[in-house]
Simulated assay, not measured.
Amino acid sequence: MESMEALFEKIEVLRKELITTGLIYGFTAPKTLHKSQELDELLNLLTNEKEPNDLEYV
């Protein structure tokens, strides 16, 4: 498994891509929904790696 720092970095990059894609194509466009699903997968990885009380919200 990759480091937590790398996972946080990927999440942040994908979050910015999701926002940009949503603003360009619309928030219900297939491209945007695909980005959202990718982000969900990474967030699920993060959640499974840490206990809920250990999560830090930035």
Score class of each variant (00 low, 15 high):
Met1Asn: 00
Met1Lys: 03
Met1Gly: 11
Glu2Val: 12
Glu2Trp: 09
Glu2Pro: 04
Glu2Met: 06
Glu2Leu: 11
Ser3Lys: 07
Met4Pro: 05
Met4Trp: 05
Met4His: 15
Glu5Leu: 03
Glu5Thr: 13
Glu5Arg: 02
Glu5Ser: 10
Ala6Asp: 00
Ala6Arg: 04
Phe8Glu: 15
Phe8Asp: 15
Phe8His: 06
Phe8Thr: 08
Glu9Thr: 14
Glu9Ser: 10
Lys10Val: 10
Ile11Cys: 01
Glu12Ala: 06
Val13Tyr: 01
Val13Ala: 08
Val13Ile: 10
Val13Asn: 03
Leu14Arg: 00
Leu14Gln: 02
Leu14Lys: 08
Leu14Ser: 02
Lys16Met: 12
Glu17Pro: 04
Glu17His: 02
Glu17Phe: 05
Leu18Lys: 08
Leu18Tyr: 01
Leu18Gly: 10
Leu18Thr: 01
Leu18Glu: 00
Leu18Ala: 06
Ile19Val: 15
Ile19Pro: 08
Thr20Asp: 14
Thr20Pro: 09
Thr20Gly: 08
Thr21Cys: 14
Thr21Pro: 04
Thr21Lys: 03
Gly22Thr: 03
Leu23Val: 01
Leu23Arg: 07
Ile24Ala: 10
Ile24Val: 12
Tyr25Trp: 12
Tyr25Thr: 01
Tyr25Ser: 13
Tyr25Phe: 00
Gly26Val: 06
Gly26Thr: 11
Gly26Ala: 03
Phe27Cys: 07
Phe27Gln: 05
Phe27Gly: 03
Phe27Met: 07
Phe27Val: 10
Thr28Ala: 06
Thr28Gln: 10
Ala29Arg: 04
Pro30Leu: 05
Pro30Tyr: 05
Pro30Asn: 09
Pro30Asp: 02
Lys31Arg: 10
Lys31Glu: 04
Lys31Met: 07
Thr32Val: 05
Thr32Ile: 05
Leu33Tyr: 00
His34Cys: 14
Lys35Cys: 12
Ser36Thr: 02
Ser36Leu: 00
Ser36Ala: 00
Ser36Asn: 14
Gln37Thr: 00
Gln37Leu: 09
Leu39Trp: 03
Leu39Cys: 02
Leu39Ala: 07
Glu41Leu: 00
Glu41Arg: 15
Glu41Asp: 08
Glu41Trp: 11
Glu41His: 05
Leu42Thr: 15
Leu42Trp: 05
Leu42Arg: 01
Leu43Met: 09
Asn44Tyr: 01
Asn44Phe: 07
Asn44Arg: 12
Leu45Trp: 03
Leu45Cys: 01
Leu46Asp: 09
Leu46Tyr: 03
Thr47Glu: 15
Thr47Ala: 13
Thr47Cys: 11
Thr47Ser: 12
Thr47Gly: 04
Thr47Met: 14
Asn48Tyr: 06
Asn48Val: 01
Asn48Pro: 10
Glu49Ser: 14
Glu49Trp: 09
Lys50Asp: 01
Lys50Gln: 01
Pro52Ala: 04
Pro52Arg: 02
Pro52Leu: 02
Asn53Glu: 09
Asn53Trp: 05
Asn53Gln: 15
Asn53Met: 04
Asp54Glu: 15
Asp54Ser: 02
Asp54His: 06
Asp54Arg: 02
Asp54Gly: 09
Leu55Tyr: 04
Glu56Gln: 14
Glu56Arg: 06
Tyr57Thr: 08
Val58Thr: 08
Val58Gln: 13
